[in-house]
Every structure is written in C-alpha cells, then in structure tokens.
Nucleic acid binder design. Sequence first.
RNA 1: GGAGGGGUGGCAGAGCGGUCGAAUGCGGCGGUCUUGAAAACCGCUGAGGCCUCCGGGCCUCCGUGGGUUCGAAUCCCACCCCCUCCGCCA
Length: 424
Amino acid sequence: MTVTVLQRVRDDPAAVRAMLAARHFEAPLDRLLDLDRRSRELRSEMEGLQAERNRASRGGPPTDAVKTRMREVGDRIRAVGEELAPVEAERDELALWIPNDLAPDVPPGAGEDDNRVVRQDPERALGFPAKPHWELGEALGILDIPRGVKLAGTRFYVLRGAGAALQRALIAWMIDHKLDAGLGFTEIYPPSVTRKETLVASAHLPHFDENLYRDDDDDVWLIPTAEAQLVSLHRDETVPVERLPIRYVAHTPCFRREKMSAGRDVRGIKRVHWFDKVEMVVLTRPEESRAELDRLTALAVDVCEKLELPVRVEERCAGDLGFVATKGFDVRVWSPGVGEWLEVSSCSDGGTLQAERAAIRFKRDPRAKVEHPHILNASGLALPRLMIAVLESYQQADGSVLIPKVVRPYLRGRERIAAGEFSL
RNA sequence: GGAGGGGUGGCAGAGCGGUCGAAUGCGGCGGUCUUGAAAACCGCUGAGGCCUCCGGGCCUCCGUGGGUUCGAAUCCCACCCCCUCCGCCA
C-alpha cells in the first residue's frame, strides 16, 4: 500500500525533500530512508533462510538430521522476523506521512496569501449597510446558534423554518446540478461514519487525526467529508477501464473537531464542527485528470454563478495545497455581511496517491499491467458558507431575504423569507 | 445480544499436514479451423515485494492476527466479516 511512496522516497530522496520544502511540510524523511534500508537488509536475510527451508521441505518427510538443521533455520527465521517486524511497522507508519508530489506548475508560496488569483468578480454592494448572517438569521428566526450550543456545544447551530428549507433546497438543487451536467455523475448516499481503514485510504489519516471525531472502542469515525467514503467505494477493486471516468456526487454531513483552529472565526457559522456538503469525486485515467480538474472547478464556479454570487478563483500555492493534492483551486464567493471572500469549494487533483492507498486499479486492456487511476475531489459546495453568502447577499433593506431564483422550485415557489415569519 | 453455518484465484468450486499458488468449470487473452462468425480443439491467463551479470532468481499472500510443526490453505487459539434462526428495535 505504501509501497509506491517508498519507491518514490528511495529512488529520488532529493525530489521528495524538495517537495516537502515547497509544501512547508515536516516529514521524517531521513528516518524513513534509514528504516527502508534496514528492513530490506533484514528481509533479504530472512528470505534466504526461507528459501533454504522451502528447498528442504519439498517432496516429503526429511531425515532426522535435516529436521534438526531446519529447526535451527526456523529459529533464525523467527529471530530475524522479530527484528524485522517493528522496523517495517515503523517504516509503513512513517510512509503515510509523505504527502503527494506537486504538479510542476504549482505556484510557490507558504500559505493562502500566496495563492494565485485566477479570477475575481467585483464585489457587489447592497446599497445599504449589510448585516452579518448571525444577525440576519436571528432576526428572521431561521438560524438559532444559542440553541445549537445548548444541544451539542460550541460551534453547533440549528436551522429553523425557511432556513432549514433553504439549505435543503440548495442541497437538492446542487445535486441535480451535477446530475444534469451531462457528465454521467452518479449520486451516492454513503454512511456518515466510517472505519479507520477508509480514512487511511483517503489519506485523512494520519495527518488529519486531531480533526476527526471517533470512537476507538468500535473503530467508528465520523467522516470529515464524503470524499473519504467516495474514494473507498472501489477500494481493493480493479475497475473496468471502460467505466472510467467514474463520477460521483454525494451529500453528507461532515464532522470536524477544528482543534487547530480553536479561536478562529468564532462568530456565526463559517467554521463549525458539523456541516453539510455536496461533494464530487472522480476516478479517471491519469492523462485526463488535468482536464477533469478544470471541469470540476468549473462546476463549482457554475453553482456560484447560477446563484448570482461574485466569484473568486484561486490556484492554490504549494504551501496551501492539502496533503493529497498535486494541484488545486479554491472557489470563493463574496459575502457582504462578513465582508470577505468565503471559501465554498476546494477542487483537487489527488493524482494516484489515494488510489495507491486504497488499492484501486485499472487495466487498459486485459494483458496490460495494472495502473492506478487519478482521483479528484471537489466540493460542490459546502453549505454553511454558501448559506452565509446567500443570506447576506440576498438580504433586503427591510430585513427580509430573497430566495435565489434557481432554488425557488425546490422551495415550492417561495420567493422571500419575510421578517417575523419564523420568529419564536 | 443468543444459537448454528461459512469465508480459497475475475466468478463458481475442490483440496483438510508434504513440489499446492492451489484440481475442475466458467469467464478473459492468443492460436488452429472458417469467406466471416459461432461451435470445436490447442495454449496462455492472480497480486505484491526483494535481488539481478536483465536471461532470470528468490520470497510472501487461501478473511485478519497469533500458535503447533522439519513442513500449514489444511491442526489449535483469538478477532473480523457474511449467511440462517431467535431476541430487540426506527
């Protein structure tokens, strides 16, 4: 599973070191190289002994003298094996900490601020002072943060009345938006919980560990995104080549402890522990993944455009790319209440990393050697931030909020959430 | 949660301590035959790793992890998963 990573590290440690530096990512590369060398030494010693034993035990009962000698060989195999096991275990564990290669054209940079802006629409002014969503939502009785906190703790919230319906409508519309794109998307509804193995396959583990909710007793983990489930859907399978590209869209809740960002974005629902998201995952032939990344990004952008929200697209720099992304774009929308460009989608070409970890393969023809597909993921889109942008952008001077035209059919024609309608 | 049955190659299904990485069938690939196709016949057909003088050599994998043995797909233990019945339940 980690084998390809080990080969990368072994064949060209300098390149891996450069990648780590570009990502500003710390990984125990030297230790890994050491363990790899040591484990190969021990394994080759052990395999020699195993070959000797196999020769002796071929073809029937051996003489007592051979038995005696083989008893000794067996002891040595055991001894070497005992030395080898912890070395390989640590090697495999560390190998999981090596992030993916970067595409050669990824812009350099340390973080978000160094991203390359690909497109930025003008911010749209409302013509009156914009309220932030927490004020709007509370006034309209459609967003109840205090009661969410009462039920589940800090950074949880409750949607009420047309607020709940609006989110439901946006979800349904965004799924249909993918299904109607003519790209052969299949809608998936996966479990919201998963097992550790799934999260290792998607590479959320080990590095995302402190952001994950789990019950270790039962090996039950709350998913941080549907991506994990969609990636593992075909785990341990060789998919028929004619089925590629495989495009999935799923709506799930997502759970994140947000431990590292405690204290950031505390007001409102921009950063919460639980949120809904429509997610796309595509398995494709390697040579087609770049075009696919553009397609997925375009789909995310199209959602924003159809909602008539100002869009900003950033190409993420090396330091801002996630663990699995070889290249990727963020899509943001302008939200006048909070006065910022909110990240509503992240679109990534994950190359073969997840397919390697998940053992997903394909063959170009029956006699060809197996290959790993490229796996891409893109949000399409994340709900709380979209809700923020919609509420804040569609607010009216009288305190009501208009419903975006494209989702009205999903709200039985509702055009407006009026003040006083849902207050308690 | 309780009782029982079972997990073997792409699929089906033998093997139950000694050349078994695994019979057989199906499927797939190549060939013979044919104007072409089908049928028939013949051959090939798992994955991963290490080493290589690039000819190949070797190792591992029969749900997972341990154990017994000179030797384990085969025996023992634990766990996981699936099926059937009972219980409980949206």
